[in-house]
Design a protein around this nucleic acid. Structure first.
Lengths: 259, 259
DNA sequence: CCTTGTACTCTACCATGGTAGAATGTCAAT
DNA sequence: ATTGACATTCTACCATGGTAGAGTACAAGG
């Protein structure tokens, strides 16, 4: 039960052309000169390619304006061009890739205008979610939320930024889902990609996490008390805070940024 | 200069299997027993297929749960399966098609929950757009807007529903673009698809168009005066009105609706 | 009658080859 | 030195064939 799939053509040229770095985050230490981590041929391939490329772009493993050709990627990843192409199309839909017909596909530049609009869309939606949720949460959910906040506190105490970001995402996703708005979360996730590259660049300022945690608390309390206006205002302030450093970046990273 | 493309394989089996109706809205009278209108082989094909299918679904030419198989569509439309597949993937992203791996692709049922959430997303965004726009329009744009409103008035006078809906779309799109929020309009368009099928079903109630026009005027005036709160409230009321008839439909169309 | 196994048919999914078009470099003509 | 034609070499895009898997019909066995 090893090669159930992969019976047909393509000797698979061993994925060796110009050892590039598209490995996703394999947490456990990988052996020394590991080539590119192969995809799982038992699972749908296109989503795997999409996820890997998305991660490589948002973590700046591949930089803006870098070429992402169907053929090269398919060789590196050991799959055919079709799923690569489908992944690129989806990334282009989300604004992370520019496809120029008959010319090539390239990592999209960080367009500050797009980042700001993504911020606008996210804020508009999440403020509305918070307002709708105010006073309409199950006790079950409120206790979940507080457990999450407690974990955030310990993440802050240990200065574990990655863990905090993970809990932050769970916090916001949880609000959407408790409100029965899963599609909204999908939209938020989609536009958030534009901001993720910027967030990845922003240096971890000391004390920033404390601010974010405090804002999460304010949002939670306003929702619990049923104060829709306050919940919305706190959410708005919180989401503005997240991207506050964009102006700082504008100078430092002019070479990655368009507009 | 007729067959510049289309040199390679596929005799193209004349697109005759089970004359189905996927013609898009060819306004001019087409000859008698015209088969399916062929795609333009000089232009990118996948978007044409997408647009045609989207239109067929939102105008209920193809009904919920109807099969949309890659192969059959490619035969009917005289193209290969690849662009059909890409169009179906995009439609699935937008919730108009359900793709079940190894089973088939089907027109998605009208899920009232999804329709309501689409309404929520649209309202959240457009209220924010109206608020942001209040007091920040160019005189140029305001006169454009009033020209549009005047045309809406004549469309109402002539009871030309299609023309009114066209102007309505231009009105809302214009607000987004004047605010510099083109991506937001794309999101709105995408979620609006869920509502379009319902709107298409709603019978033209007499006097309804007058209400919508009056609301457009209220929104415009509040924006012109720079009254953000009022603009938002009018927009909210307006967008709620658009879908007010959903409850009426729930009974009449139980066979098309899920949940 | 109900279950189980087994061909058979259908699907979406992936691999892969061919095509036109865009960019670039070369070289002759101006 | 500049321009224009042509060849070369890329690209994304489309066509098409093969594959595994999910249903279904039906026969054999309970």
């Amino acid at each position: 039960m090893e090669e159930k799939r992969r019976k047909l053509g393509a000797p698979i040229p061993d994925a060796q052309p110009s050892a590039t770095l598209l490995d996703s985050g394999s947490v456990a230490g990988s052996p020394a000169a590991a080539a590119v981590e192969p995809v799982n041929p038992r699972l749908p391939i296109a989503p795997q390619i999409y996820e890997r490329l998305r991660r490589a772009i948002t973590t700046l493993i591949v930089l803006p304006s870098e070429a992402l050709s169907e053929k090269e990627l398919s060789l590196q990843l050991g799959v055919s061009r079709t799923p690569v192409r489908e992944a690129l199309i989806r990334l282009a839909d989300e604004g992370l890739v520019d496809i120029l017909p008959q010319r090539g596909s390239f990592v999209a530049p960080i367009r500050l205008r797009d980042v700001e609009e993504a911020q606008f869309i996210r804020e508009s939606l999440e403020v509305a979610v918070a307002r709708r949720l105010a006073g309409h949460c199950s006790p079950r959910f409120l206790s979940e939320l507080k457990l999450n906040l407690a974990r955030q506190e310990s993440a802050v105490a240990e200065q574990d930024r990655d863990f905090f970001l993970e809990l932050d995402e769970a916090f916001h996703r949880g609000l959407c889902e408790e409100a029965g708005l899963s599609k909204s979360w999908r939209v938020i996730q989609s536009v958030k990609l534009q901001m993720d590259r910027v967030r990845y660049l922003s240096l971890p300022e000391p004390g920033h996490l404390d601010v974010l945690l405090a804002q999460h608390r304010q949002i939670t309390e306003a929702i619990e008390r049923g104060q829709a206006d306050e919940a919305g205002l706190h959410m708005s302030a919180h989401l503005k805070e997240v991207l506050g450093s964009a102006n700082l970046l504008r100078q430092k990273l002019a070479h990655l940024i368009e507009s």
